[in-house]
Simulated assay, not measured.
Amino acid sequence: MEEKPVAMDEESISQRIDAKSHGLVLLIDDDPMVAEALRVMLENEDDLRMHYCSDASSALDVAEQLKPTVILLDMVMPDINGLMLLRYLRVNESTRAVPVVALSMKDDAKLKAEVFTAGGNDYLIKLPEAIELIARIRYHSNCYIRLLQRDEAFRALDISQRKLAASNIKLQQLASMDGLTGIPNRRYFQETMQNEWERATDDGKPLSVVLMDIDFFKKCNDHYGHQYGDEVLCKVAKAMESSMEHKSELVARFGGEEFVALLPGVDIDGAAAVGERLRKVVDSLKLDNVQSEVCAWVTISIGVSSCMPGTEGTFFEQLIKSADEALYEAKMQGRNRVVKSLDLNHSEGKSQ
C-alpha cells in the first residue's frame, strides 16, 4: 500500500489539480491497521490519492517532497508526538499552508484547543465514518488547491506587470534615444531643457547651451559615402558623450550633423571651456575628411550661450537661438572653434 513519494513543485501540482481536480492526501500514522482502513475508505474516490508515512521522524521530509494538498496527522506516535510534528509543519516553508487534519482516539476539548492553537485545520476522532472523512478531506484539499491557484495567478500577474513595466521603460528609452548614434535625441533634449529651466529658475543658477556642428559634413558624406558618414556621426557622438564630466550634463543629437550639450549650473565661461574640450575631443579622433576646407580630418564648430532662467523677458528658446547665432559666427570666423554669445540677460544676443 505504501507508495514512493513523487517530487513536484507547486506549479506542477496546481496544473495537475487544475486539470483533474485531484487531491493528494498524506497520512502520518504509526498504526498500519488505521492506514489500511483509511485506504479502503478512499480507494474508490477517483479524485483523491493517498500516501502513507508510518515514521513520524521522516514525515517532514516526505511532506516536503510529496507536496500533499491535505495531511492526516495522528496525535499519538512514538518519538515525536502529533502536536510537535504539527508545529514543525507550520514553521516549514513548503508545508506551512497545507491543511492538517488531526486524528485522535480522544474526544478531548483541551487537545482540540491545542491542535487549533498549533495551526491545525480540523480534528477527527478515529475512525471517522467514510462519508465524513471524505467530505472533510475534499473540503480542505479544495481550499488549498484554490489557494495554490490564486497564488500562481498572482505570481503570473506580477511577472506580467514586471514585464510590462520593463517594456514601457524600454519603449521610453527608445523614444528618447537617437536611433543611429545611441545618444539622447532632440525630443529628449527639449524635455530635459524644460525641466532644467524650471529648476534653474527656482534655484537662481545659470543654464548654458553648447551647440555643435560637424564642419563640411556634406562633403564628407559625398566623398566617402553615407556609411562612413554614419560612422563619423556615431564616433563623434560617443566621444562627446564620454567626455562629459557631470551626470547633470547632457549631450544629444540635435539633428543631422548637429549636436547640443545642456549644462545646468554652468556660466558662459564654464560652457565655453566645455565647448573647447569637446572640440579637442573630436579633433583627436582624426576621422578622415580630406574634402574639408579646415583640415584633413573631422572638426566641429561650436556656439555657446548662457543665461539666468527666470529673468524677465528671457525664455529657453532664446537660449538656443543665441547659441545658434554664436555657432554661425564660429563658421564665419573659419570653423573649428568656439564662439561665445554675450550674456542674454544683458545683451541683445550678439556674439563675441
Rank of each mutant, 00 (worst) to 15 (best):
E2Q: 13
E2A: 06
A7M: 09
M8E: 15
M8G: 06
M8P: 00
E10L: 11
E11R: 12
Q15M: 11
R16M: 13
I17E: 15
L24G: 00
V25G: 11
L26I: 02
L27I: 00
I28G: 12
M33F: 03
M33P: 00
V34F: 07
A35N: 03
E36T: 12
R39G: 14
R39T: 09
R39C: 09
L48E: 15
R49W: 04
C53R: 02
D55L: 01
D55M: 04
D55T: 05
D61S: 12
D61V: 01
Q65Y: 04
V70M: 09
L73T: 14
M75P: 09
V76W: 10
V76Y: 12
D79R: 03
I80L: 10
I80E: 09
L83Q: 11
M84E: 15
Y88M: 13
V91I: 14
P99A: 14
L103I: 10
D107K: 03
D107V: 00
A109R: 13
L111V: 00
K112S: 01
K112L: 02
T117N: 13
A118E: 11
G120A: 04
N121T: 09
Y123P: 04
L124Y: 13
K126R: 02
I137Q: 09
Y139M: 14
H140Y: 15
H140R: 05
S141K: 01
S141D: 15
L147P: 01
L148K: 05
Q149F: 01
R150A: 03
R150K: 04
E152A: 13
A153G: 08
R155Q: 10
Q161G: 00
L164S: 03
S167N: 12
L174F: 05
S176R: 12
Y188A: 13
E191W: 07
Q194L: 11
D203W: 06
S208I: 08
K218G: 05
H223C: 05
Y224L: 11
Y224A: 03
Q227K: 03
Q227H: 03
V232D: 13
M240K: 07
E241S: 13
S242N: 14
K247P: 00
E249Q: 12
L250M: 14
L250H: 10
A252D: 06
A252P: 01
R253Y: 02
G256V: 01
E257I: 05
E257V: 02
F259V: 14
V260D: 15
A261V: 13
P264N: 08
D267M: 02
D267R: 00
D269G: 01
G270F: 07
A271N: 06
A272R: 04
V274F: 13
G275K: 03
R277F: 03
K280G: 00
V281G: 04
L287D: 14
L287A: 04
V290D: 15
V294R: 10
A296I: 02
W297D: 15
I300N: 06
I302G: 11
I302Y: 08
S305G: 04
S306I: 02
E312P: 00
L319R: 04
Y328C: 07
G334R: 09
V338A: 06
S341V: 05
L342S: 15
L344T: 02
N345C: 14
H346E: 15
E348P: 10
K350C: 07
